[in-house]
Every structure is written in structure tokens, then in C-alpha cells.
Nucleic acid binder design. Structure first.
Lengths: 247, 247
DNA sequence: CGAAATTTTGAGTTCACTCAAGGATGGTGG
DNA sequence: CCACCATCCTTGAGTGAACTCAAAATTTCG
């Protein structure tokens, strides 16, 4: 492995240091991806899994007439193609939203490790179950919330998860999505997303400078997006809410 | 157990007869549920799992102001609260859409069985992973399809799954949802669902008599709903498409 | 520095929503 | 067995949130 690889599985709270080391040892290589590159495509039958070391990716589906729906965001620490391991083929594609770096673990040794280390198997179970939970929350988000609420909710989720992954500080973080991508994630048009961002700015729920977003008052943004982080199943350590005075 | 219980796990294709017997032996009791009754509620920490023997249930989330989003449908053969086993607490509620009967398996013995029978553990993995896949397809459905397409898509999914569960014949099946519930599943209003049903009828994509729906031409309905069953991961045996001339 | 991608704004349109009300259906009890 | 009540389904008319089309301003990056 190239130097001291930082492999912090998102659900590592359930893993001992020894188990984490075992997983890290199974990594055969890393891959650097540029922005807007696919890691896997729907229908493919992958033979390896990927853990995100850096960068932000998304799960998405393509529909007729060029429509696209982003069905999930993946941040560092996430295992992004377990469904390929479990089901044999991918029901969706995974691609980058930013330049990214992923660790590669072939399926075969991973299966062996899971057989021999129940705690690791349990952590991977949780990864899949939390993916399912997040997808269900997204159904509710696009199904029953207004465009304004959907964008606020997405801001909360991405902010919380970047914070948990150690990529936010003091309520500020790099926003990894273009407005086109926010549109594909929330099921509205790009133009309308732009109007919602403007309104969120006017309402002082967010402040943007370039691609950095600052949230002056998380409680208000959470309220606006009806956001309750329970569905993310972040471990208590990660739960630390991005508060204004975290410092 | 009360008589010859029919416990056909939806993903039983992956299970030997012996393994199925082991699972069935873990069932401690059955529960009869009336229509519109909750099996589990969001936030609860269940100590047992349920396999649907008969009837149709749904996963749902409640939102402020009485809004509700149904995030999944469960048919006979489905294991409907594995997420409670894996994550400790429920991120959503599960309730009946029709009168139903479920088999109860306590968590503790189930964990033991999973440790000792990898094939059973694998089947449960697949159950969770397919839940996640279905939820992602639902995100795309409510996010990027018109009301007409959403209802057509739901008709296809429920029809296919009832068919796979042995509850449909010759392209006809009992439709288990009220229009209110279809609205909660597709993210539109009840009134608009009614108009979409009318249009589907006028377009000869479905025919209804009472709560029985007949689909004269599955290919056309699938096309209308952009429905591709791959995301359901039905086993080849169950894959048999409800065709017009199934007899 | 220039080309391409992204963001921003305006004007008009439409799909789906709200409000309102009548009709069908099915279960329950007298 | 029928009357009644509750739920569910159906339809119409007007409204509004989000969409489409068009185009300019800004940022990013080779």
C-alpha cells in the first residue's frame, strides 16, 4: 500500500482496531478518479468493492430521454458497491461528483474475511441497511416535500455526512454538487434549484462563497428541510452535530 | 406450529429445502393482522422479525402536517423488518394494506441460525439489498416520472411481485391499495391518482372490476411506466412474466 | 485569454394541486 | 334483510408551484 492509507470505514464504530487493520490489508490497490467519471455502471457484474478514501460520489439511474435521477450521495468512508457483491449485478451506476480516490477490495478475499470475522460482516450489513434507510428517506423527500424543502434537506444530509467524515468545520464545507446535480438529486429542474438556492440565501439559511457553504444556524436549516438525522445511523461519535460554536 | 405452514421466502431460490426447514423451525408463532394495522413503528427497537405469510403490507414514513409517504410494498414471502435486526431501531413503520398473516422469528435464534448457516445469512443479505434496490427505483419513480408513469410503474411492480408470490393468474390480480394509498406511494394527491386511473382505463392499459385489476397487455403497461423488473432481483423461476397467454 | 460550463434572471405555460360536492360501495347493527 | 353510516371513488372549476423557453452574466479551466 502507498504510505499510511487512511481507511476509516464510515461504520467503523462497530469495528475494533484489529478488524479495521484486517480490512485495510485486503485492499489491493487504489484508484484516482477525475470529476464526472463512472466507477461502475448499472447492469455490470463487478468483481471488486470500493471504499471511498477521498472525494464525493453519487449513485444514479438513467431514464429515457436523457433524464437522470441521483439516488444517493457517497462520502469518504462509504463502501459504495456492496450491492454488486450481494446481488451479483448493479441496479444503479456510481460516479464521481468531485475528483476522488477509492480503495479497491476484490470480492473473493472480502468474502473470506466476512466468513472469518463476524464483526466485519456485521459492519458491512449495516452499510447496506443504512443505504436502504437513506434511499427510503429520499423517497419521502422527493415524494412529499416542496422544492425548497428538498434542497434544504439535501444540504442537511450532505453537511452532516461531510461533518461526520471529517470534511467540515465550524458549519462550513465544500459543496460538491453543481445545481444541475442538485436538480437530479431532488427531482426538480436546474433553473428551479437556482431559485431555491437564492431563496435559501435570502432567508439567511445558507451563505455561499464560491463552492463553500456556511450554515449560520443548523437548527433553522434542519427545520426548513424537516431533517432528522436518525435515518443516517451515524455512530454517536460522528453524531456531533455541526453546531455554530463547535470550534 | 399450526399445521403445514407455508413459509416460502421470496429469495428461497438461494435456499436448499433443508435450509428452508431450518428457518421455518425458528418461527415461534404467527400473527393475524387486520387491515390498516401497524406491525412496527418508526423508532421502535424490535426483538423479532416477521415473514409475511399472506396479505400485503407497506413501509411508510409520517411527515409533519399529516403527510405520509409509502416507501415500499411487501408481499407474501417478504421479510419485512430486517432493518430492525441489523440497525437496532426502525427508520420507518410497517403496516398492513390488507388483512394479513405473518410468521414471527425472534432475533436471538435468528442470529444463531445465520452464524451456523451461511446460505441463510446470504439470503437475508439479499433481502436487505433488494429492499435498497427497490427504494432507489422508487426515488427515480417519484423524482423523474409523471403522475401517469408513476401509477403505471406501481401497477407493474405490484403485479409482478404478486405474480412471483403466486397471487396472480392470467394477468389478473387483487389490487391491494386504495387510491389514497397509491397517492401516498407515488407522491401525488388522491384526486390526481383517480384521474390517472381513469386515463389508464381509457387507454386500455388496465381494466378494473371491483378491486380486481386485469392487464390486457403487459408490454404496453410496462412501456407506459418505464418498468424494467431487473431492480426487483426476482429469481429466474419467479421471473416468469405475467403474459397475456400464461393460462 | 478564450471556450465551455455553470449560474442567474425574466416571461409565459402546464401539470398537478386545492376546494367543493355528488355518487358508489361495503360493513354493521337494528 | 334492509337501513344507515363510513369509507372510498368520481368529477368539475379555479389556482399555484414548478416547468419550458430564451438569453445574459459569471465562473472555471485548458
Amino acid at each position: 500500500m502507498n504510505g499510511p492509507m487512511v481507511l476509516t470505514l464510515a461504520r467503523c464504530a462497530a469495528l475494533s482496531a484489529a478488524d479495521q487493520k484486517i480490512l485495510a490489508a485486503a485492499v489491493t490497490s487504489t484508484r484516482d478518479l477525475r470529476r464526472d467519471q463512472d466507477l461502475i455502471r448499472e447492469g455490470e457484474q463487478p468483481t471488486e468493492c470500493h471504499i471511498i478514501l477521498d472525494g464525493v460520489l453519487c449513485r444514479y439511474k438513467l431514464l429515457p430521454e436523457g433524464r437522470r435521477q441521483i439516488v444517493g450521495i457517497q462520502v469518504p468512508g462509504d463502501l459504495c458497491d456492496l450491492s454488486g457483491l450481494v446481488m451479483g449485478h448493479m441496479d444503479h451506476s456510481v460516479g464521481t461528483l468531485t475528483a476522488a480516490k477509492v480503495a479497491v477490495i476484490p470480492h473473493a478475499p472480502l468474502r473470506t474475511i466476512m466468513d472469518e470475522h463476524p464483526a466485519i460482516a456485521a459492519a458491512l450489513w449495516q452499510e447496506i441497511a443504512s443505504d436502504a434507510s437513506i434511499a427510503r428517506e429520499w423517497v419521502a423527500n422527493v415524494g412529499r416535500r416542496t422544492a425548497y424543502q428538498r434542497v434544504a434537506h439535501l444540504l442537511c444530509e450532505v453537511g452532516s455526512r461531510l461533518q461526520a467524515a471529517g470534511h467540515a468545520s465550524d458549519g462550513s464545507f465544500e459543496w460538491p454538487l453543481t445545481q444541475q446535480e442538485v436538480a437530479d438529486a431532488t427531482g426538480v429542474t436546474t433553473i428551479h434549484v437556482n431559485r431555491m438556492f437564492r431563496q435559501l440565501r435570502e432567508d439567511r439559511l445558507i451563505a455561499m462563497q464560491g463552492s463553500t457553504i456556511r450554515v449560520p444556524d443548523w437548527a433553522r436549516l434542519r427545520h426548513a428541510g424537516e431533517f432528522n438525522p436518525d435515518y443516517l445511523f451515524l455512530s454517536p461519535r460522528e453524531q456531533e452535530r455541526p453546531s455554530a460554536t463547535a470550534s
